[in-house]
């Protein structure tokens, strides 16, 4: 191990980790919003839109992110749609993640009894109010484990941003590896950097999941 090489390049890895984390989180946030909208369209059977959403979910879940990114970054500009590397990263990750998040939220929504919605409407709430105060909080609790699993999955997928000429962790590592030849050092730092990003996220996920599970308003019929 060449420790001086490692210490010299810690700032590079920090910068790369920041890019990975930042764009990962943008992607996760946008995916969650898109996924939630799609899940509402699916669960409440909005005509026309529903068919579009279904097609989108299938497309996003059955194609690799790498191919999606190539299409966005190298394909679309040729027909006049030009996105920056950063925009491609967020759009690509959102395209992929939206489909997965939609499925997660949809199963959460479907787990809420139909009668809950009727009960909300029977006390004079409008449908949007019922969804917001009655249905969604319960759906979120059920969907939480799947949503967190998707979040971790999406952050891992950011490793493919390196094809977009973004200086994320992968690309930092690649650049250093090809120029310096210190493969082992570079790979060790790469692993450590990903652990540093992913470990807190997965610990947080476990904690929230446990809290949700014991929140105590589940459907168990204990009297």
């Amino acid at each position: 191990m060449d420790w001086s090489f490692i210490t010299a390049h810690v700032p590079d890895f920090l910068a790369g980790a920041w890019v990975t984390l930042r764009f990962g989180l943008y992607g996760v946030a946008c995916s969650a919003m898109l996924g939630l909208l799609c899940s509402l369209v699916l669960a409440y059977r909005v005509p026309v839109l529903r068919a579009l959403v279904r097609a989108y979910v299938e497309l996003s879940r059955n194609t690799p992110l790498l191919v999606q990114l190539f299409f966005l970054y190298a394909g679309l500009p040729r027909i006049g749609i030009r996105l920056s590397a950063e925009a491609c990263a967020v759009v690509g990750l959102t395209f992929l993640g939206g489909g997965y998040m939609a499925e997660a939220f949809r199963s959460g929504l479907e787990a809420v009894d139909r009668t809950q919605r009727e009960a909300g409407e029977c006390i004079g709430l409008t449908l949007p109010q019922t969804v917001r105060y009655v249905v969604l909080p319960q759906a979120f609790a059920t969907a939480a484990p799947a949503v967190f699993a998707n979040m971790i999955f999406l952050i891992k997928e950011t490793s493919m941003f390196s094809v977009l000429a973004m200086m994320d962790l992968m690309n930092v590592a690649d650049t250093l590896r090809t120029s310096g030849g210190r493969t082992i050092e570079v790979l060790s730092m790469l692993v450590i950097a990903y652990v540093a990003i992913l470990l807190p996220v997965s610990v947080l996920a476990t904690l929230v999941e446990r809290r949700m599970r014991y929140a105590g308003f589940g459907h168990q019929h204990s009297v």
């Binding site: 059955n62 194609t63 191919v67 999606q68 190539f70 299409f71 190298a74 394909g75 679309l76 040729r78």
Partner: peptide, 19 residues
């Protein structure tokens, strides 16, 4: 426009296999 069509084709090919 070659890249657009080539990458679109690859995208569709993956979809046709996985879906």
């Amino acid at each position: 426009e070659a890249p657009f069509w080539v990458y679109l084709t690859i995208f569709i090919l993956y979809f046709l296999i996985c879906w």
